[in-house]
Write a protein that binds this DNA or RNA. Sequence first.
DNA 1: ATCCCGAGGG
DNA 2: CCCTCTGGAT
Length: 217
Amino acid sequence: MMKDTACRIFSVLLNQYIREDTNLNFLEFDNPFQILIMTILSAQTTDRTVNSVKGRLFEAYPDPHSMADAEISKIEEIIRPTGFYRAKSKNIRGASEMLVREYDGVVPDSMEELIKLPGVGRKTANIVLNHAYGIDAGIAVDTHVKRVSYRLGMTDNTDPDKIERDLTALYPQEVWGKMNFLLISHGRAVCDAKKPACERCCIKDYCRYYSNNNFFG
DNA sequence: ATCCCGAGGG
DNA sequence: CCCTCTGGAT
């Protein structure tokens, strides 16, 4: 794919997701703690479900200090709809405690330190670095990024490391974090693995999967 | 009834 | 490497 096509896809997606007002907290680069928590919460669920609990959660526990003092059972009650709620609650509380104890309540800005936090692996850490700090941490290739970028034709490979290289070559560094978010969101909301909603896809005109009638072979 | 696919643990 | 955790979408 040509770089100008890739950049066109980026701006169409960005406008679409700003208009839909979904998960704008991921695009705000000003609250690393809430970005971290939202990212942990987002595993194995939908944007809508996460958005449905974030108000109550952050109203009760807006920062690492209050979250570190929270009753686990109270966190569980709030985030239950997002699934894996016992592990997530324990991790969210544990991470908050570690932030208070070891980092003065400040979310660290390096991969090594982030992945020490409970519930934070390389994918989550990567997204936090990109969205909370705008730091060059490459592009985290999860299955959504893999599927969407492959369908669009941004890569011809299914190896995550190769896909990351292809995507980072296609986009300027200052856009990696946002593009990473947009590919994941689009993969969840529209470009479904089994039943992609191509009729309402804002970038279908750029998609080789769509133009080939949802078929590769 | 089945899938989701990240993190952690065995 | 392989398994489990969960509610929600389908």
